[in-house]
Design a protein around this nucleic acid. Structure first.
Length: 502
RNA sequence: GGCCAGUUCGUCUAGGGGUUAGGACGCCGCUCUUUCACAGCGGUAACACGGGUUCGAUUCCCGUACUGGCUACCA
């Protein structure tokens, strides 16, 4: 609408926002969660606002020890920092929901007193029965609540008796029976409207005394003065509940932006299960462990559902902070592409210093070849940089660390001539052994001399030498590879191959 | 089933009433390299369908189909 005259700067000239990333510590941070965190972070940094980390640990059954630490490490790995959070506190502390239960109970009490909530005693069995009876169409709502066992349907003295007898109960939100549809503006999709009779009486307080997400998220976002709720699309259908809650509490609701979901290449939400099957890592920690460059992960993720409006594709985190805008967020689901991520990774990998590459790959290399040192790996990294997609791929080139055990069959068939290859290779080995110096240039001169002396083309020696020293037909510049291998290994390998291949 | 959202090359996307529908990944080819890769160049490939509205719809509206999400005392 105002697109014509607006510049990228004025487009998203927002007042400082307060946004949060609010993961549940039920496991390692999911790659989709990282994207959600990223968009929140970008908006906060761009507007000079605040990015908070809040831990939503209200589900005691799914709580995973160590998950919170993993989440924090994952965020730090890609370079995202937060202004307020469980580890560093802040003016709205605490930032762990399990430490805010008193606050939720107060709010629930308030809701109960104002008639916006009620006690419900229905057991799991009773609820299941109701669902079965209604053929899955059951909703605990204005239409059905009087048929259930709660403080609305039961006489007051009975409710009193049940509570005093210690009967477990939950507190449910009482959705208004009549009224206008709930309408809210989603920054990504525009106005969304849902009729009141489609909103059910959401449980606010569980029988274990912990709040549900719906309650805790509203209370915390209000208490923490969150201005923009940027979260996954899976929350879109329950947003009316949250809007109604804000209304009942007399609070202003924040702005909402629901991000399209990341789909698996085979369809459906990119879940642990579906991704594993396709070899797609789902946890951020896995990307780190496999050797992805965090800059590539961020770059890839940023462009999955957002675009800058021009053809730029390469962005560092600070560049993203500048370029980001909510307006350019896509509203359609996106499919995860490992190929594209790998391409980004190659982009960053190619201008990573060899020293850093070697350091990244060292653990993987040492797992196969314990004696390899960082110093020995640096020249390998330098040589192979353009031929690998991940730092850890360096570990695949075993020939840098041990003599080849086998020779590529097709390569031998094509390049190794029984009539003269062995003799040529032996002659070259002798020349290399006797050479005054050992460097790529000398090695090449020597090879051409050897070939000339034997009356064959250089190629007739180059290919057999590559096979003899590396076992394969593919690789970096032959003479630089030989230089990295070292004189002893080269001479030894040449002679061994001549003997074995004949 | 109900509710909500979505639908431009295989994938990520730009665009938007009149365009040769643009870019990127992938794939294919060429160049470079006596190999492989990188890089460069070129190519392949898309507006889900049906009705409207309009001089003209891929673009706006309505349906349909399909996809996805939600429908827990999980988040």
């Amino acid at each position: 609408m105002w697109r014509f005259c607006s510049t990228p700067m004025s487009d998203s000239a927002l007042a400082p926002v307060r946004v949060r990333f609010a993961p549940s510590p039920t496991g390692s941070l999911h790659i989709g969660g990282l994207r959600t965190a990223l968009y929140n972070y970008l908006l906060a940094r761009q507007t000079g606002g605040a990015f908070l980390l809040r831990i939503e640990d209200t589900d005691r059954d799914r709580f995973v020890e160590g998950a919170e630490a993993d989440i924090q490490e994952s965020l730090r790995w890609v370079g995202m920092d937060w202004d307020e959070g469980p580890d560093r506190g802040g003016p709205r502390a605490p930032y762990r929901q399990s430490e805010r239960t008193d606050r939720y109970r107060d709010i629930v009490q308030q809701l109960l007193e104002s008639g916006h909530a009620y006690l419900a005693f229905d057991t799991k069995e009773e609820l299941d029965a109701a669902r079965t009876a209604a053929g899955d169409a059951f909703a605990y709502d204005a239409a059905s609540r009087m048929t259930m066992r709660n403080s609305l349907s039961l006489p007051a003295d009975e409710v009193q008796r049940l509570v005093e007898a210690g009967m477990p109960y939950v507190v449910r939100f009482k959705v208004p029976e009549r009224g206008e549809p709930v309408v809210f503006t989603d920054l990504v999709r525009g106005d969304v409207s849902i009729p009141l009779d489609r909103v059910d009486d959401q449980v606010l307080l569980k029988s274990d005394g912990f709040p549900t997400y719906h309650l805790a998220n509203v209370v915390d976002d209000h208490d923490m003065q969150i201005t923009h709720v940027i979260r996954g699309e899976e929350w879109l259908p329950s947003t009316p509940k949250h809007v109604l809650l804000y209304r009942a509490l007399g609070w202003d609701a924040p702005q909402f932006a629901h991000l399209s979901l990341i789909l698996s290449p085979t369809g459906g939400k990119l879940s642990k299960r579906s991704a594993d099957k396709l070899g797609i890592p789902v946890n951020v920690a896995q990307y780190r462990d496999v050797g992805y460059d965090p800059r590539a992960v961020v770059n890839f993720l940023a462009l999955l559902g957002w675009n800058p409006g021009d053809d730029r594709e390469r962005f560092t985190l600070p560049e993203l902070v500048d370029a980001f805008s909510l307006e350019r967020l896509g509203d359609a689901p996106v499919t995860f592409s490992l190929d594209k991520l790998a391409w980004f990774n190659g982009l960053y990998l190619r201008d990573t210093p060899a020293e850093d590459l070697a350091a990244m790959a060292l653990p993987a290399v040492q797992a196969k070849h314990p004696d390899v040192t960082l110093d020995a790996l640096v020249p390998v990294a330098d040589l192979m940089r353009e031929r690998i997609a991940f730092a850890n791929d360096l570990a695949d080139f075993d020939y840098f660390f041990e003599d080849p055990a086998v020779y590529d069959e097709a390569g031998v068939a094509k390049r190794w001539k029984p009539e003269h290859s062995a003799a040529l290779v032996r002659a070259y080995a002798d020349a290399v052994e006797a050479a005054p110096s050992f460097d790529a240039e000398t090695l090449e001169t020597l090879l051409r001399q050897t070939a000339d002396a034997a009356g064959v083309k250089a190629a007739d020696l180059i290919h057999p030498v590559r096979i003899a020293t590396t076992g394969t037909t593919a690789g970096a510049s032959l003479f630089h590879t030989l230089e990295v291998l070292g004189r002893d290994a080269v001479v030894r390998r040449l002679r061994t191959a001549a003997d074995r291949l004949g």
